[in-house]
């Protein structure tokens, strides 16, 4: 894959809720195959920024460009709503913290995975079924459970199903909001392992929002630390975590409980 230009180019993005800033003057480039972690405490603007980047919240100021297939750089918020929604459901993925937000709990696991395929025009039941089975295997869910409702799945399985549902159309960019939140540590470790494998194999770019520094250390290439809406420090993950420069980052790193 050529990487002479970034996949996502973010220029001075700010978002205000009334006169209160959600995120302030954020600029960043995301390159193909790169994973960027965004960390910070609750209320620091991580999710606001994620929503702006994932075309779900129009920023008050600033511009975001995306390198669309066969089209080149496009201004996300200059696209028509139809184009934007098409982009979101084909070229992008979104993994929510709570699987309830990302899954259809009332329909079977197979239909959850197949939905995106049907949304882009797949009309052959057998092929949809085969792809769903293939993806259940790839995210380590027993294929015999293809016709079970996600409600009957454990938290970790729901999260893996959510990942399969997002990756089935072969997206290039995936947004993740606390993908391991609420899972116990052994399940977390398995999920992280799985994610790391998938991301490398599929050459995905990921924007990963979390407050868990262990997760970004494992997954992210680069790290942005946010406080009160601003990016206070950014750099290579290991560099930022091992040698934090900003006072807030130092506080954050030293606050992690050692097991």
């Amino acid at each position: 894959m050529t990487s002479d230009r970034p996949l996502l180019n973010v220029q001075n993005v700010s978002h205000y809720y009334g006169d209160r800033a959600g995120c302030l003057d954020v600029s960043v480039d995301l390159w193909p195959g790169e994973i960027i972690g965004i960390v910070g405490e609750s209320g620091s603007g991580k999710t606001t920024l994620l929503n702006c980047l994932s075309a779900r919240l129009q920023p008050t100021a600033g511009r975001i460009f995306y390198d669309q297939r066969h089209r080149g750089l496009v201004d996300l918020y200059a696209l028509s709503e139809a184009e934007r929604r098409f982009l979101i459901r084909t070229d992008w993925g979104m993994v929510h913290q709570n699987p309830r937000d990302g899954l259809r709990l009332g329909v079977t696991a197979g239909a959850n995975i197949g939905e995106r395929l049907m949304a882009v025009g797949e009309r052959h039941y057998g092929q949809i079924r085969d792809k769903a089975l293939d993806w259940l295997g790839r995210v380590e869910i027993d294929t015999a459970r293809i016709d079970d409702l996600p409600q009957t799945f454990s938290g970790g399985m729901q999260q893996r199903l959510q990942i399969a549902r997002n990756l089935v159309t072969g997206p290039r960019l995936v947004f993740m909001d606390e993908p391991t939140g609420g899972l116990d540590v052994s399940v977390q470790a398995r999920l992280l392992d799985l994610l790391r494998g998938l991301v490398t194999r599929l050459h995905l770019s990921v924007v990963l929002v979390t407050h868990d520094l262990a997760v970004v250390r494992l997954l992210a290439h680069r790290l942005m630390v946010m406080q009160r809406g601003r990016v206070v420090e950014s750099g290579l993950t290991d560099q930022v975590l091992d040698d934090p420069q900003h006072r807030y980052t130092q506080l954050l790193v030293s606050s992690v409980l050692q097991a």
Binding site: R85, G110, G114, R116, Y125, I146
Partner: peptide, 18 residues
């Protein structure tokens, strides 16, 4: 309005699967 109808087939898929 946007003609996003893929979801309709989810219902038919469920019928065949179950």
């Amino acid at each position: 309005a946007l003609g996003e109808y893929g979801i309709m087939h989810v219902r038919l898929y469920e019928d065949i699967a179950l």
